[in-house]
């Protein structure tokens, strides 16, 4: 059974058709990148998959279960997590508390009501994850005071607390320096060993360097799909997207 099975997905905003009858099967492993010119409907697909938007038509199956029209908090519990184009943190909390918020979601209801926020179990689990992504030394700093690259990493780490088997990353490279890009690329590689990763990204070096397969969207519909090598050779992709990029 495939991971995602998407059938006839359609979303309109007034007259604009953002996603037009998209049908798609996504396999369980590897890194899938979604690319396309601005306004091709990449983020809309993300929002549909994660429940932020409700589709006007179509169906989304995740591991055979229908998740169409479910709310974000329900979809998370199926094992899907996402990050945002703009780093989305709890700005007034410390790095550690940012992690705790997510970790304690997994505790039982009674624990959540009566346990102190700074309990040992949540702290240990948070630090463990921060260690994994390499920002454990920053744990006690305010989230709004750490460098941008670290904020991006923290954002990623927060997506991991629900222990997702699918991670959707919306432009993980946006606004990063070359050094930071390398760091995030390595992190994504590491994370992809144990889970599915779906990316929306404009950085073609990353996309072609890291992806196992690439999906090209154009005007809300699928233009092409294949391995990086196939996509690079595809003529309609060249004219719709890569050609423009080069000029």
């Amino acid at each position: 059974m495939n991971l995602f099975s998407i059938q006839g997905l359609t979303k309109r905003f007034d007259a604009l058709v953002a996603t037009n009858d998209v049908s798609l099967e996504i396999e369980r492993e590897g890194i899938l990148s979604i690319i396309g010119p601005n306004g091709a409907g990449k983020t809309t697909v993300f929002n549909l998959l994660t429940g932020l938007l409700k589709p006007d038509a179509g169906k989304i199956l995740y591991k055979g279960e229908d998740i169409t029209g479910k709310k974000p908090y329900q979809i998370i519990r199926h094992g899907i997590a996402r990050s945002f184009q703009v780093v989305s943190l709890f700005e007034e909390m410390t790095v550690l508390d940012n992690m705790r918020v997510g970790i304690q979601r997994n505790l039982g209801l009674m624990n959540r009501m009566f346990l102190e926020a700074s309990n040992k179990a949540a702290t240990e689990k948070s630090l463990e994850l921060l260690e994994l992504v390499g920002i454990a030394p920053l744990a006690d700093h305010g989230a709004s005071h750490i460098p941008h690259g670290d904020r991006k990493v923290l954002d990623l780490a927060m997506s991991l607390v629900s222990e997702p088997d699918t991670l959707l990353l919306d432009e993980p490279m946006a606004g990063l320096s070359p050094v930071e890009r390398l760091r995030i690329t390595n992190l994504i590689r590491k994370l992809s060993e144990t889970r599915k990763i779906i990316l929306v990204e404009h950085d073609m070096d990353l996309v072609f360097g890291i992806s196992d397969s690439i999906l090209v969207l154009h005007h809300g519909a699928i233009l092409a799909r294949g391995t990086p090598r196939e996509i690079a050779a595809n003529e309609s992709v060249q004219s719709a997207y890569l050609g423009k990029e080069a000029s």
Binding site: T50, K71, P72, Y73, I76, R77, A81, R82, F84, S88, L89, F90, E91, E92, M93, D97, R100, V101, G102, Q104, R105, N106, L107, N111, R112, M113, F114, L115, E116, A117, S118, N119, A122, M158, S159, V161, S162
Partner: peptide
Amino acid sequence: SRSCFGLSLQSVRQNPLRSQYLGYNI
């Protein structure tokens, strides 16, 4: 306000969207 529940409430104030994506029914 110092419990896990309290921290969750703070997260709802500071960034409701992110809270939802951590699995909270805000």
